[in-house]
Amino acid sequence: MTETGERPAQRSGVYRIGGDLPVHRLGFGAMRITGPGVWGEPADRDEAIRVLKRAVELGIDLIDTADSYGPYVSEDLIAEALHPYPDELVIATKGGFVRTAPGKWVPVGRPEYLRQCVEMSLRRLKLERIDLYQLHRIDPKVPPADQLGELRALQDEGKIRHIGLSEVTVDEIKAAREHAPIASVQNLYNLTERKSQDVLEYCEAEDIAFIPWFPLATGELAKPGSVVADVASRHGATPAQAALAWLLHRSPVMLPIPGTSKVAHLEDNVAAAAISLSPEEVAEFEKLSG
């Protein structure tokens, strides 16, 4: 808690997913609470539970996961740690990937499989409705109308509140919106990787949440004497914290979800919400590229 009673993540501001689902903009990505290769149980299960509980204590009310994380391990841990859930907590999950081995991801978008994914995520997470359900990848072997149509049917049945996409182009978002309302897009985006810049701009124009995965990558841009390192130093922060603060400043629809399996790292990440970059510092970061 801060001196005003405010929890740290609350300083990141609020965004309403789909126009009616308020969350603090700094969330938590629950991929890293699994084993190596996003496979199996975490090395320290008790610490993973502590991370999830601490995230909520810090004011995080958006937790992003997927049935493929583990597989199933991340969703199970979330339910174990946090159910019954606080009223304000939004759990976003994803489906449409089959896991065959550590590091292996195979998209499967057949309607009957997606329906099974939703039903099983509801069971594992102990939910009656998933607030944000994201198609983890569009399966190129299945007509988009079939994939999005099934999610829309599940939405109409009250099992999904909002539908999201992951790793898509602007054209794919537009095509998907012909079959279902799209409330969020989750693409790779960070200080060194901005190939989804046009997607971010489209999301801004259409008021669609943009959830950048792998948000803390800084690479060579964070080396001593760099712009990132210098800006971070001015704020008594780490380069990773400065990069996360930049994402929060970059767009009002940006919802970063840095993940970790350690409480100390979680607390460091959330501290970035308190960093107020100047317009000049934001402009300096804008000029950088990986």
Rank of each mutant, 00 (worst) to 15 (best):
T2M: 14
G5T: 09
G5Q: 11
P8R: 02
S12H: 07
H24N: 15
H24V: 08
A30N: 08
P36F: 05
E47M: 09
I49E: 10
D61P: 02
L62P: 00
A66N: 04
Y69V: 03
G70R: 02
P71L: 07
E75Y: 03
E75R: 07
E80F: 05
A81M: 12
A92W: 04
G95N: 12
V98N: 06
V98I: 15
T100L: 15
G103V: 12
W105E: 11
V108C: 14
G109N: 13
R110C: 01
R110I: 00
P111L: 11
E112G: 00
L114G: 07
S121M: 08
L125M: 11
K126A: 10
E128A: 08
E128T: 13
L132Q: 06
H136I: 03
L151M: 15
A153Y: 02
G158L: 12
I160Q: 06
I163W: 01
I163Q: 03
L165V: 11
T169N: 12
D171G: 08
K174N: 07
K174Q: 15
A175H: 09
A176I: 07
H179P: 01
I182R: 05
N187S: 10
Y189N: 08
L200N: 01
I208D: 01
A209D: 02
I211G: 01
I211W: 04
I211M: 14
P212V: 07
P215F: 04
L216Q: 13
A222V: 08
K223P: 00
P224M: 13
G225V: 08
G225K: 12
A232G: 07
T238F: 04
L247A: 10
P252C: 03
M254W: 08
L255A: 10
I257E: 04
I257F: 05
A264M: 03
A271Q: 06
A273V: 05
A274Q: 12
I275N: 01
E280N: 08
E281T: 03
L288N: 10
G290W: 04
